[in-house]
Simulated assay, not measured.
Amino acid sequence: MPVPLYQAKAEFFRMLGHPVRIRVLELLQDGPLPVRELLAAIEVEPSALSQQLAVLRRSGIVTSSRDGTTVVYELAGGDVAQLMLAARRILTEVLSERTGLLETLHEGEGAAS
């Protein structure tokens, strides 16, 4: 029996649910990068980065290629970059609404004093 689409989407978002994986995807939006540059930008242990890259590779969201001894990663498709941009827009909107609410609450505290 095929997996329902909503379940496949939930598994996809769970796969994205790690800060190192998100950071890798953000960095790869501008094009392919070798592992050493990812390591320098993310500042995690090499084994931790390797583990997270393996998750992204198995999911098919990134691909890797070898150039001599250098392993280079890139996004598997442009839709991933669009997803990262959409997430940024959504978070910006949500946070600006919360900031507005906080400002309103603080203004109310001043009036109550």
Rank of each mutant, 00 (worst) to 15 (best):
E26H: 12
E26M: 11
E26D: 10
E26V: 06
E26L: 09
L27S: 04
L27N: 00
L27G: 00
L28P: 05
L28I: 04
Q29V: 10
Q29A: 13
Q29M: 12
D30T: 13
D30L: 11
G31N: 08
G31E: 06
P32Y: 10
P32R: 14
L33S: 07
L33H: 01
L33P: 01
L33M: 15
L33D: 03
L33I: 07
P34G: 09
P34N: 09
P34V: 09
V35E: 08
V35W: 05
V35L: 09
V35C: 01
V35G: 00
R36Q: 10
R36A: 10
R36F: 10
E37P: 03
E37K: 12
E37S: 11
E37T: 08
E37Q: 11
E37Y: 10
L38A: 04
L38S: 00
L39Q: 03
L39F: 04
L39H: 08
L39Y: 01
L39I: 03
A40L: 14
A40N: 12
A41V: 03
A41Y: 04
I42Y: 03
I42V: 01
E43A: 14
V44K: 05
V44D: 00
V44M: 04
E45A: 15
E45S: 14
E45F: 13
E45K: 15
P46T: 02
P46G: 04
P46N: 08
P46D: 06
S47K: 14
S47R: 14
S47W: 13
A48V: 15
A48N: 12
A48I: 14
L49G: 05
L49T: 03
L49P: 07
L49Q: 02
L49A: 02
S50P: 07
S50C: 12
Q51L: 15
Q51P: 09
Q52D: 05
Q52N: 11
Q52K: 08
Q52R: 08
Q52F: 00
Q52H: 10
L53R: 01
A54E: 15
A54V: 11
A54Q: 14
A54M: 13
A54Y: 14
V55F: 07
V55H: 03
L56V: 05
L56Y: 01
L56C: 00
L56G: 03
L56R: 06
R57D: 11
R57L: 13
R57C: 04
R57A: 11
R58F: 12
R58K: 14
R58A: 12
S59D: 07
S59I: 03
S59T: 00
S59P: 02
G60S: 07
G60N: 05
G60M: 07
G60V: 04
I61G: 05
I61D: 06
I61N: 02
I61V: 14
V62N: 01
V62G: 03
V62E: 00
V62M: 02
V62K: 00
V62H: 06
